[in-house]
Design a protein around this nucleic acid. Sequence first.
RNA 1: UCCCGAGUAGCUCAGGUGGUAGAGCAGGUGACUGUUAAUCACCGGGUCGGGGGUUCAAGUCCCUCCUCGGGAGCCA
Length: 433
Amino acid sequence: MTSPYARITELNTHIGQVVRVRGWVTHLRSSGKVAFVVMRDGSGTLQCVLVKVSLPAETWEQYGGLSHETTIEVAGEVRSDKRAPGGVELAVTSLTITGPSPADYPIQPKEHGIDFLLDRRHLWLRSGRQRAIARVRHEIEQAIRDFFHKRDFTLVDTPILTAAIGERSGLFSTEYFDEGTAYLAQTGQLYGEAAAAALGRIYCFGPTFRAEKSKTRRHLSEFWMVEPEVAFNDSDDNMRLQEEFVSYIVQRCLERRRDELIELERDLSKLETVVAPFPRIDYSDAVRLLERKGSGVKWGDDLGAEDETLLVEGHDRPVFVFNYPKEAKAFYMKENPDDPRTVLCNDCLAPEGFGEIIGGSQREDDHDRLLRRIEEEKLPIDAYGWYLDLRKYGTFVHSGFGLGLERTVAWICGLPHVREAIAFPRMMHRLRP
RNA sequence: UCCCGAGUAGCUCAGGUGGUAGAGCAGGUGACUGUUAAUCACCGGGUCGGGGGUUCAAGUCCCUCCUCGGGAGCCA
């Protein structure tokens, strides 16, 4: 009487066989003498059919003890049936409750407020939409690793606890033994530059932290970023790498996560056009274009979220905006030899108003110019001694970029807010669960 | 930090000009042999975010505080 365990996703290879399935109850429907239990095992969902007259009384009794999210083990014959969602169902002969669930399970198959759901994120993750997002995110992460691995990049894990270094925006800090204050990393880039001089092509991929008191659909206090750094790549090489990278990720999701994207009601035609090369707009041209479109932006300003949306209007793939004014960008970006007011850098703006997913640049490789920029920004020179060494001992042209994982997940899945793109989002007003 | 918006049943919300609260879903009970977020009947469920004020009377009007959401700045 011990039939084999099967995962729901593989049941169509067991038609006519008796199997056991373990999982959680997601829906209950009863018609008196026939009852339906829809269950989830993590691999898929399955409709189980219980017919009163063909079941032992105690098995039928068990049905009455079921509620939403009860953990059960069922056994029965796998049947092909047009009336079943997915075309396959289980004709139950025995049912065991292995984990009861009280009747007050809070998440119903209906609309809820975002605050309510985020307070119950640990349970919300069980819903179909959240599972689809998790699978697309996984595919994106795997695609990122495969892309770089195939191109002979070496993964270098950079520190999360750092001294004061990186960018200017808000830092999380903590006491660090006798060394004073440590800061949670906002980027692995500077360390990536050091590693690029050792290994040529590297990338880092990990969590990063920004303490800005920011409350918008594009912000998290903790998010994941992938940052490649390539020796001897100039800014043009850098953009070519970006467009090939982004196209690869999108096409791979279309190929392997189509079902999830359809469940998320994503318009796939908007993703199918994401193929390199991407259009490129010089910053100064972008400002002129924005002025014509009625934006209040002036040369020298960074571009706002609304400007970004205006720039990608009419494009069916991401758009590069390159060579921003020096003042709008970080100290480590290389001065543009053709226009010293600007630096060799680019943003990559996702279409449909999803905004900036990549920031990249060629790095300043001239020791003295970099030193001057550090002084101009009034950054603590002591902390940057090792970074300047990279220019002192065998300087080299190099470029890299950072791609925000959650923004990319949000774009590909069509999510209005990045908070759904990560299992347990960290935001200004949210540290738990 | 600034600008909007919202807090009413477990959840999502409705409550013209002030007269001490209502729906759907969820929960409970019952009916139903093929349901698809099943359907139908009945039942329980509320310090209307906190405090203060105006008034015979406040969910409703005024003040204040709190919490949250959306956006801005900044960024991936």
